[in-house]
Structures are given as C-alpha cells and as structure tokens.
C-alpha cells in the first residue's frame, strides 16, 4: 500500500521543457509519454494555449487505453485542466460528464470543482437524481453507479446552497466515505458545527482509508475546531500536514488576513504549532 498519491511527483523526466511536454502530448506520440506529458503540464501549471489545445484533444481521446481498458490519458488530461486557466476549459469538461467511464466522470467533476465556476452546478445536481436511495453499487465493481463523493464535494465547494436538503439524505448513506463527503459539503454550505463534528468522528473510524478520507474532507471544509483532532488522528503525518495546511488557507481566506502573514492571529499560530509537531 502506498500513501495517497503524494509521492509520485518526483518523476525522472523533471528536466523536460514546456516545449518537450507539449510535443509529447501530440496524438502521434506513444501513450505512456502522452500520459506523463498531461501530468507534467498540470503539475507545472502551464496554461499556454498550445498546452490547452493538446490537453483538450487528449481529454476526448478514447483510443489510448491502459491494459485494464481504462481511459488513463483522458483522466490525466482532465486532472491537468482542473489546475489550468483558459476560457475553453469549463465547457470542455462539462461535455465529458457523460463519459461512459466512471473514473473519467469522477476526475472531470473534481476538475470542475477546482475551476470554481458555478455554471456546472445544474449538471452536478442531475447526478443526485433519485437521492441517496439511487446511490447503489454496481455488481462486480468497486464503486457506486456515480462518483457521489466527488459530486457532493464539488457542490459544497461551489456553494450550491439550494441543494443542501438533498445532500442531507447522503449523511445516512451506507458507505462511510459518502457520508463524509455529505458532511463536508453541508459544513461548507451552512457553517453549522454539527457537520464539522461529523467529520471529526470520521477521524476515529476503525478503517484507515476512512480516516484518511475524513482528514482530507476536514481540511477542505475549513472547520477550524477540528484542528487538534486532525493532529491526533492515527494516520500518516503527510496527510495530517496537508489537512492542516488546507485549514490554514481556509482560515486566511475567511478572516481576510490573507495578505498579512507577518501578523498571525491566535488561530493561525495554533495551526502552525500543530504542524511543527507533525514534521
């Protein structure tokens, strides 16, 4: 078992230039190089029009498949586009929400979430049709019919306040990670501590995968009262540090002290001392 994807960025092709990466994304190039090129452009935040051109082609390229039949290149292209800026990105991503591959839909939703453009909210609400009862697993697959966690998280981030009553149903969903995603969204939409405390409870779940999920959700939620609980969770320190950094950024954003790191308030000081102790 590995950590949650936090160690893969030190690729061996770190000496690539922007031009090499763009050239290696072209359809004539071998699949694994295109896959890496897509990651590279996202990681280094290359929003040049030629980079976006290549990524938009890759996003829709279903000819390149990994050995298990998955659309790995599409997923990496979507992930990269989520991090970049260009007026074409949001509509291109929205068109891929109907992709037949579950994992592509999941990554596309996450990319739309990071684009922070509320125009996709109606598309996301459509995924919740039928409510929590319709959110069942597919026989023989390790996932539900739709990527509900991603949908709920995105709706919270995008401040889709009208949909809070529907999200509440998902607090009772049998899958713990779906419950956590619902709690995270509801805290972001309502700022009610009861939802933050649901996430804190998740930090004490018996399964490590659930605790990891709760860490990430709590960090993203901005529920500051969960900070000490994050630090005390039985999980890898890398994840706890990331969750605390997310809380720190959320706090800066909320308190409007974003531009004054020289004079931190008591909350920021507390977050920093928790982080120091986890290094």
């Amino acid at each position: 078992m590995t950590h949650m994807g936090d160690e893969h960025s030190n690729g061996m092709r770190i000496d690539w230039t922007v031009e090499t990466a763009i050239a290696n994304l072209q359809p004539t190039v071998e699949g694994s190089l295109r896959y890496y090129a897509a990651w590279w452009l996202g990681h280094f935040r290359i929003s040049r029009p030629e980079a976006i051109d290549g990524l938009l082609v890759a996003l829709n390229d279903e000819t390149h498949r990994s050995p298990d039949g998955g659309l790995a290149l599409c997923r990496n292209a979507a992930r990269a586009l989520g991090k970049l800026q260009d007026p074409r990105i949001v509509s291109a991503l929205r068109q891929r929400l109907t992709c037949e591959d579950y994992y592509v839909r999941e990554v596309v939703i996450q990319a739309l979430e990071s684009q922070a453009d509320p125009s996709c909210i109606p598309d996301l609400i459509a995924f919740l049709e039928g409510g929590a009862e319709a959110a069942i697993s597919i026989p023989g697959k390790p996932h539900l019919v739709q990527p509900y966690e991603a949908v709920l998280e995105a709706l919270g981030t995008l401040q889709a306040k009208s949909v809070a009553p529907l999200i509440q149903e998902f607090l009772l969903h049998p899958v713990p990670k779906v419950q956590l995603a619902a709690a995270r969204a509801l805290y972001q939409l309502t700022q009610e501590p009861q939802y933050g405390e649901r996430l804190v409870l998740g930090l004490r779940h018996e399964k490590l995968v659930v605790r990891r999920s709760a860490l990430m959700d709590l960090g993203a939620s901005g529920y500051i009262a969960g900070a000490s609980a994050i630090a005390a969770t039985l999980a890898e320190n890398s994840l706890k540090l990331t969750a605390l950094k997310d809380l720190f950024n959320a706090h800066l954003h909320q308190s409007g002290t974003k531009n004054d790191p020289e004079n931190l308030d008591a909350t920021s000081e507390q977050l920093i001392s928790l982080m120091d102790a986890l290094l």
Binding site: K245, F248, L252, K258, P261, E262, L264, I272
Partner: peptide, 11 residues
Amino acid sequence: VESVVCARIHK
C-alpha cells in the same frame, strides 16, 4: 508561493 510557508518564515 505557499501562504503557510511564508507565514512560517516570518515567524
């Protein structure tokens, strides 16, 4: 570029 690292440097 990271706010939290900047804050830590100032401290």
